[in-house]
Design a binder for these strands. Structure first.
Length: 834
RNA sequence: GCGCGAGUGGCGAAAUUGGUAGACGCGCUAGACUUAGGAUCUAGUGCCGCAAGGCGUGGGGGUUCAAGUCCCUCCUCGCGUACCA
């Protein structure tokens, strides 16, 4: 099998053929010398084809091995693979290979998240068809994935932009619709008044449209929502069951869901003439400060503003203020350092606890999306209210007293936001904040003017997109404009081809074929779905990617789900990962799944950086994976990316360090080419090194500590260089390296076996052979290392103490006294306190 | 603004979770082999110091016999912030 050892080294051939040219040629072309030694190009392509032909990585569905599902966040086909992809997929592939070798039935699929904005942008900019642009990119990226030697089962491949996938998006939409999890509501969008189109946040640059440059407006349109808030409590509580998730991701999701427990209070609203208008409900976590309320604020988007505008002496000034607020981003509006804008409406509200009459404001810092879109303002005990009240000369009422000091109004450069004892609070004065919250709420409950309430920061999921390149929402409108669900038998609602991309409006509006269907007068919904819908359930579809009778197969789901290991970027911590959890629970409640959570273990990998910054085209600091594979081979690329940093930390790209990984592989290649040069000189040392290495590498791979796993392999190779190795030692080395460097290990394995190394069993170790009977202990004086000593293991303290106190290096520190205290950590250290 | 992380030699990092700080690799230095070396092999390499020794895990403070690891505080950088995926 191995021809290479018989090849005449090329550096001998070249000078003979072209003597005068040789030096300049060798100077120009680095690879000539490498080829004589170790040239991955000579075998990588051969193994790619052979593995495919022998179906080495295809999983079986009926197998007595334990199923194991390795999942990576599937790529958006942007054009070319970048290093972030390479890192993501190398991490997963290494695990998949390890799990196969340890006897698991591994499901390791890949697909393409192929709907989305960039395809439509390309269509507008370059006149290409989104579908062909996308599918071309899929082909390119698929080739690159295969170059890397990723062991995917390509039978599972899917692309979300194909109707055999997105029809099931529509089917799931209909199931959710039936279940009452879908509704329509008005929401604001970014509106480009020149292009007459809705813009994504990303397409708004400094408040202007990315193409037209026009100042972007807010426009209110009716849109479709999924009721993810129905699951807020479960999504929050079940985080506690996800032991295999990083704490930081769970923490981010907890804050994203943002549960706070408090009360709702009803304020009666009266217009300027004293006429009752309606009841306004506010949410607060600090009802204990209710006596200190000095005004009430509503969000600029609040429905009550319509009534105010209709009776106001200057409706344009009301609208002008609202427009001014809507121009700001939500982050700016809630920025503590930014000016709080307020508009006094002339309306009054009644504080239900003491019947005090308070002014009603519209304020920019109140957000319609949180709570009820209205707040009571207590300037003394909330910093934003304090800033607003100071600006608008509103009264300050101190109602919470700091139990440790006595606050007076003159102490108020800042609000006092802690709990304390109530004062100036009528019958509730003297209560502590916690007791008062219950007491005051109970009082309001008895008057039917308030109630306890849990509030979530999580908002319902707006899935409508006014775009072409996405899944059509399966709804039709009758002549009266009422929505109706499309019948399941009519799925898929196909994306029409008779559309143009001029950047103006939604292309689906203009398609004739799209709106032609049996019922006359009916029109189709032209909104498409958020692409996060596609990625919320794709891991269920992999198992039955080609099934045209159902979205997913319950029997296969039962075998392989939940996903054992999910791998991807931490940037998806709150959106994608929360949406996928919601889909799993909602599909369960629709009767299609039995699991509660989709992903048992989650790994969030770090980014790949160059010169300290994220690799990006705009910065011009990208490194093309294809170039690295072409120059060094896929094994080197994989090895560097795994060795360079811990998996969850950012990885700084280094051309020099890539050379180092290449050198490591070359050293192994050399060992296997001429084992006779490395005769076994210290069998005991080598045997122990080998068993220790198996132990450490197995331990580290199972914990995703790939960088240290590889360092142990390097140590083993160094041992072989110094003390020699046997054929058995080399076989173990290749097995341990196989998940990391699949090509070279397979090539070298053929010296020993005619079967694939990737179907071989992972080696085991003998714990007894990993041990030594000696240990080096440290002797400290007052915590500083002063001496070291190698002794037999597990020695008694008393006899050792005597030896230590009489050692040459220690005696001078004792100054003829005995130590105050001696701390002994068996087999580790002595610390003498003097 | 709000939420979540990260910070250790010239560089990427390691440290059995409170017990020898710097494994492994890059780079650098010296040597060997060579017509040659940007190949390969061998040895050395945290900083200051001739040395004895001292100093060292972003800054400052604390707990402890002992702190990279625990507590308080400050600084810098990264990610997310709901229509990028």
């Amino acid at each position: 099998m191995n021809l290479y050892r018989y090849l005449v080294p090329r550096y001998l051939v070249f000078p003979l053929l072209f003597p005068p040219l040789f030096f300049s040629v060798s100077f120009l072309c680095d690879t000539i010398q490498l080829m004589s030694e170790f040239c991955p190009k000579d075998f990588e392509e051969r193994w790619r084809q052979r593995w495919k032909k022998d179906a080495v990585y295809t999983r079986s569905f009926s197998d007595d091995k334990i199923p194991y599902y390795v999942l990576e966040m599937f790529p958006y086909p942007s054009g070319k693979l970048h290093m972030g992809h390479v890192r993501n997929y190398t991490l997963g592939d290494t695990l998949a290979r390890f799990k196969r070798m340890t006897g698991h039935n591994v499901l390791y699929p890949i697909g393409f998240d192929s709907f989305g904005l960039p395809a439509e942008n390309a269509a507008i900019k370059h006149g290409v068809n989104p579908k062909s642009w996308t599918l071309d990119n899929v082909d390119t990226m698929k080739q690159q994935l295969q170059l890397l030697g990723l062991s995917y089962d390509w039978n599972c491949e899917l692309a979300t932009c194909k109707d055999d996938y997105y029809r099931w998006n529509q089917w799931i939409f209909l199931q959710f619709y039936k279940k009452g999890l879908v509704y329509r509501k008005k929401a604001y969008v970014n509106w480009d008044p020149v292009d007459q189109t809705v813009l994504a946040n990303e397409q708004v640059i400094d408040g202007k449209g990315w193409r037209s440059g026009a100042v972007v407006e807010k426009k209110e349109i009716a849109q479709w929502y999924f009721k993810i808030t129905d699951y807020a409590e479960e999504l929050l509580n079940d985080l506690d069951t996800l032991d295999g998730w990083p704490d930081r991701v769970k923490q981010m999701q907890r804050h994203w869901i943002g549960k706070s427990v408090g009360s709702e209070i009803d304020f009666e609203v009266f217009d300027g003439s004293g006429k009752y208008v309606e009841t306004l409900t506010v949410f607060t976590t600090r009802i204990d400060t209710l006596y200190g309320a000095s005004y009430v604020c509503i969000a600029p988007e609040h429905p009550l503003t319509a009534a105010i505008k209709s009776v106001h002496v200057s409706p344009t000034s009301v609208q002008g203020f609202i427009d001014q607020c809507l121009e700001q981003s939500q982050a700016d509006r809630s920025d503590n350092d930014k000016v709080k804008l307020g508009f006094e409406t002339g309306y009054k509200v009644i504080n239900p606890i003491n019947n005090e009459k308070l002014p009603l404001f519209i304020a920019n810092y109140v957000l319609m999306d949180y709570g009820t879109g209205a707040v009571m303002a207590v300037p003394c005990h909330d910093q934003r209210d304090f800033a607003f009240a100071t600006q608008h000369s509103l009264p300050l009422k101190l109602v919470i007293q700091d139990p440790l000091s006595s606050l007076t109004l003159s102490d108020f450069p800042h609000a006092y936001c802690e709990d304390g004892l109530l004062c100036n609070s009528g019958p509730h004065s003297g209560l502590d904040s916690k007791t008062a919250r219950k007491a005051i709420t109970d009082t309001l409950i008895s008057q039917k003017k308030g109630r306890f309430k849990a509030q979530y920061r999580l908002r319902d999921w707006l899935i409508s997109r006014q775009r072409y390149w996405g899944t059509p929402i399966p709804i039709v409108y009758d002549e009266a404009g009422e929505p109706h669900a499309v019948d399941e038998s009519e799925l898929p609602v196909l994306l029409p081809e008779d559309v143009t991309f001029d950047g103006k409006g939604n292309p689906l509006e203009q398609s004739d074929t799209f709106h032609q269907f049996p019922q006359p007068g009916y029109r189709r919904e032209t909104d498409t779905m958020d692409t996060f819908v596609d990625s919320s359930w794709y891991f269920l579809r992999y198992l039955s990617a080609k099934d045209d009778t159902q979205a997913f197969d319950p029997a296969l789901i039962k075998q392989f789900l939940p996903v054992d290991q999910y791998i991807g970027g931490v940037e998806h911590a709150c959106l994608h990962l929360l949406y996928a959890r919601f889909f799993t629970k909602a599909l369960r409640d629709c009767g299609y799944l039995e699991i509660n959570e989709p992903f048992t273990r989650l790994l969030t990998q770090g980014m790949v950086l160059k010169d300290g910054a994220k690799m990006s085209k705009s910065l011009g600091n990208t490194v093309d994976p294809s170039y690295i594979i072409d120059r060094y081979g896929a094994d080197t690329a994989r090895l560097f990316i795994l060795f360079g940093a811990p998996v969850d930390r950012d990885l700084e790209w280094s051309d020099k360090a890539v050379e180092g990984s290449f050198r490591f592989l070359k050293r192994i290649w050399a060992l296997c080419q001429s084992p006779e040069k490395y005769p076994l000189s210290s069998p005991d040392i080598v045997l122990r090194a080998r068993h220790v290495c198996i132990k450490k590498v197995s331990h580290d791979i199972a914990r995703f500590q790939y960088n240290t796993a590889i360092s142990h392999l390097m140590t083993l190779v160094n041992t072989f260089y110094h003390h020699g190795c046997s054929e058995d030692d080399l076989r173990i080395l290749l097995l341990l390296l196989a998940p990391f460097a699949p090509f070279m290990t397979e090539e070298l394995w053929q010296q020993f076996e005619s079967t694939s190394i990737h179907q071989a069993a992972w080696p085991t170790f003998d714990p007894a052979l990993c041990e030594t009977d000696e240990v080096t202990i440290v002797i400290q004086v007052n915590g500083k290392v002063r001496d070291k000593m190698t002794i037999a293991k597990n020695q008694e303290r008393d006899s050792l103490e005597k030896v230590i106190l009489s050692r040459d290096k220690i005696i001078p520190y004792l100054r003829d006294k005995s130590p105050k205290k001696i701390i002994y950590v068996p087999n580790k250290l002595f610390n003498l306190v003097i």
